[in-house]
Nucleic acid binder design. Structure first.
Lengths: 159, 159
DNA sequence: TTAAAATCGGTACTAAAGTATGAATAGCGT
DNA sequence: ACGCTATTCATACTTTAGTACCGATTTTAA
């Protein structure tokens, strides 16, 4: 089935070309009969044919044009991130007036750890961590750990 | 200079076309004079013009046609150390293979916004944001928005 | 013209986060 | 000794986040 379809597609342009040519010839004959084309108008007659069939040729060519496949070699740069200078903004950190334990919690919190993970690492209960975290949010003037992390990173008060 | 050259290149085909057309008309006139073309041979006359100018059109089209180039990208990894800056690490960002919307969500997520806030800013439903966020976590290989923010900041894939 | 994504949205559920409040203990400075 | 803060932990509760499904378009790629 696809084979017949391909043949049709390949010969479609030729068929269309033939049809248009036939219609054009009929149209010319009609004009010839209607206006009794003068002999000295041959140049105009030829010119019209030339223009029309030139355009037709261009159209046919664009339809038949096959895409040229061209392989292009592209180099892809892969960046290697190096642990850049870790400078902590001590001034901003002092402004927050955090307690020692709150500071500990903040360190782990900004590393993306959950309350349970922080509790495990600092040997605290989940309740205690929640308390510290809540107090942290008040001192940092944020409403979620997401904001806390963003602010801590932005102010560089954590590595 | 290159500008004039471009104009010449672009008009070259038209010039050639005009010249060929002129020569063809002269040839026709010569044939007309030489063999005293009969009135009832108009169809043959028109047919010749049609065929010739169709071929001419095809030729012109092939000359003017821009070659359709099918690029095949071959990646060659080149390792480069990142010039420690505040620039966004596009390379790491590409590795994540995020979709457009996921990228949008990530931008707001890393600013500390909640799902509800993101939904409001991007005019999406909460469900959609949750879907995007979940997919983000898979692609970023993290398990919470806190880790996502931390990783995004660490890899500098967000301002 | 398929097939694979991306996009948007929904429901239902579990897990985690966050709030509020209270309470016990230890240390520190006046 | 007293007040103050820090630290620890608990209970109870509400809210948010997160997962796991699903379906319907739409866009894109092969």
């Amino acid at each position: 089935m696809t084979h017949l379809k391909d043949i049709f597609i390949k010969t479609r342009h030729i068929t269309v070309y033939g049809l248009i040519m036939a219609i054009f010839v009929f149209a010319l004959k009609w004009f010839q009969w209607k206006f009794l084309v003068l002999d000295n108008a041959t140049e105009i007659y030829a010119g019209l044919i030339a223009i029309c069939f030139t355009l037709l040729g261009i159209w046919v060519a664009t339809q038949l044009a096959k895409p040229k496949i061209e392989k292009v070699l592209v180099e892809k740069e892969v960046y290697v991130t190096l642990p850049a200078g870790i400078e902590i903004n001590e001034a901003e950190l002092k402004k927050l007036n955090l307690s020692g334990r709150e500071h500990d919690v903040l360190q782990l919190l900004t590393k993306g750890q959950s309350n349970t993970e922080i509790a495990g690492n600092l040997f605290l209960s989940l309740s205690t961590v929640k308390t510290h975290v809540s107090n942290l949010f008040v001192k940092m003037d944020v409403k979620s750990r997401a904001q806390a992390i963003e602010k801590a990173k932005r102010l560089k008060i954590t590595p």
